[in-house]
Simulated assay, not measured.
Amino acid sequence: MNGHAIETHGLVKDFGGFRAVDGIDLAVPAGSIFGVLGPNGAGKTTTLRMLLGIIDPDAGHRTLLGEARPLKVARQVGYLPEERGLYPGMQAREAIAFMGALRGLPLKEGRARADQMLEAHGLGAARRKPIRTLSKGMAQTVQLLGTLVHRPRLIVLDEPFSGLDALNQERLEAVIRAQAANGVTILFSTHVIAHAERLCQRVAIIAGGRVRFEGGVEEARARLKPEVRLATRAADGPWRAALPAGAVREGHLWRFALPDSGVEPLLKALIDGGAGIETLSIERPGLHDAFVAIAGEAAAKAMDGHALEDAA
Rank of each mutant, 00 (worst) to 15 (best):
R132Q: 11
M117A: 06
M99E: 12
L154D: 08
A92C: 12
Q116F: 03
G183T: 10
D158W: 13
T141D: 00
L107R: 13
R103W: 12
R103I: 06
I186N: 04
P81M: 05
Q179M: 13
L80E: 06
A112M: 15
R171C: 01
D158R: 00
F161T: 02
L118K: 01
L172Q: 01
Q116C: 12
I193L: 12
K108N: 11
Q116W: 14
V156D: 07
P88H: 10
G124Q: 08
R153C: 14
R171Q: 10
G122I: 11
R93T: 06
G146V: 07
L123C: 03
V156I: 14
V156G: 01
P88E: 07
G122L: 07
A166M: 07
P152H: 14
P106F: 02
R132T: 08
Q143K: 11
V149S: 08
A178H: 08
A174L: 02
P152F: 02
A166C: 01
L86Q: 04
G124V: 05
A114W: 15
L134M: 10
A181N: 03
T147N: 03
A92T: 09
E109T: 11
L86V: 10
M99P: 01
A125W: 08
F188I: 03
Q140D: 01
E83Y: 00
M117P: 05
K108L: 07
P88C: 11
Q140Y: 04
T147V: 03
L164Q: 04
G104I: 06
T190L: 04
G85H: 14
T141P: 08
L107H: 10
